[in-house]
Design a protein around this nucleic acid. Structure first.
Lengths: 190, 190
DNA sequence: AATATACTTGAGTGATCACTCAAGAAAGAC
DNA sequence: GTCTTTCTTGAGTGATCACTCAAGTATATT
């Protein structure tokens, strides 16, 4: 009996994610979203409830896609090669919304205000870190990395390196791929 | 003949810096600044011209203080020890406005809008990097670091590590001091 | 004391913020 | 076709944004 919405919800969330990722939370106004999503305010609020709610969905998609891509990479070329290639892949795309990680951008922007989205970002970062730890452990099981290392410690440092790389990649005149290579080399030395 | 302002300009800039550092550019409203600086709008604009102008002065002070502290540390305990201790020092203070670097926060927040302050932040980061490179070179001259390394490359990676550390330090439940220690250990291995 | 020269005050500017809601339009059920 | 249910529209909400400016006040010079 009801009328169906004439949009693809998943597509809208992806476009919102790209906009939020690039411009940040306060840098993205509802007017921006209305223009990008081709929605009037009424439809927007009927569909998503609030700007924050959509931002939450956008971050969720960002993380899910990231976890999935990493898993695919690991399936294709093994855990240690995935970990080595991941940094370069994270910054290689020229048409990505931003070089920096959406989660770190959100955390830095909203943490001081104790905004719920900052906490969400923090939890998502932890989720990523757990997958890194998982890959480090798999690499240890495969005998590719010394087993005396704690995979959680390795993952924490790896995550930190990755975040630094992706901030550096936002800068002009910085050869970020060289930094990515150094991170990869660091893994080889473990 | 004129009346003197009844405030200490340098003190105002420091307090503005702390507020901007903690809350970011768009997270700090003029109302916030008026409250923190105890200034009415008229005085504020007479003294600083605009929010952006004050933000620029605040970043300038942030960098100058950073460069000076690093130089002092290097004078006190030598270039390589300064480089080793710096990461831990950057995140140790509990009453600092934020763990993350003000320059990286500004860059991430404003880069997508091509805001002049993002460019300023980028230049300031380069300035810091140059001082790091200088210390690496001094350490090489003193025979403390292998001379085959390019100090500019070392500095770039060091800066990236530092930025990552300071983003990680914003997260809850992360032992950032352990990451700082790993960065220091990395320098020892050079 | 008079004057000139700032500095301080705070109400007020238009613009934009996230968001609301009543009215109209579309599509499946009958 | 009619009804019911949902989606779409877009003008409009109060709040807040960075910022202005005319009037009042304080101080150094003469």
């Amino acid at each position: 009996m009801p009328r169906k919405p004439n949009f693809d919800r998943n597509d809208l969330i992806e476009r919102a994610r790209d906009l939020f990722w690039k411009r940040g939370w306060s840098g993205t106004s509802l007017k921006d979203l209305e223009a990008e999503l081709q929605m009037k305010p009424g439809s927007f609020y009927a569909a998503f409830g609030s700007k924050d709610a959509l931002f939450g969905l956008a971050m969720q998609k960002y993380v899910n896609d990231g976890l999935e891509h990493l898993r695919e990479l690991a399936d294709k070329c093994g855990p240690i090669n995935a970990l080595k290639q991941w940094p370069a892949k994270a910054i290689e795309s020229d048409n990505a919304p931003a070089k920096a990680c959406m989660l770190s951008k959100t955390l830095l922007e909203l943490n001081a205000h104790n905004h719920p989205l900052a906490e969400q970002a923090s939890l998502h970062l932890l989720k990523m870190e757990e997958q890194f730890a998982d890959l480090f452990q798999q690499a240890q099981s495969a005998g590719e990395i010394d087993k005396t290392h704690d995979p959680l410690v390795l993952a924490r440092k790896y995550q930190s390196d990755l975040l630094g790389l992706r901030v550096s990649a936002e800068r002009d005149g910085i050869n970020a791929q060289a930094i990515a290579q150094e991170i990869a080399d660091g893994i080889s030395r473990l």
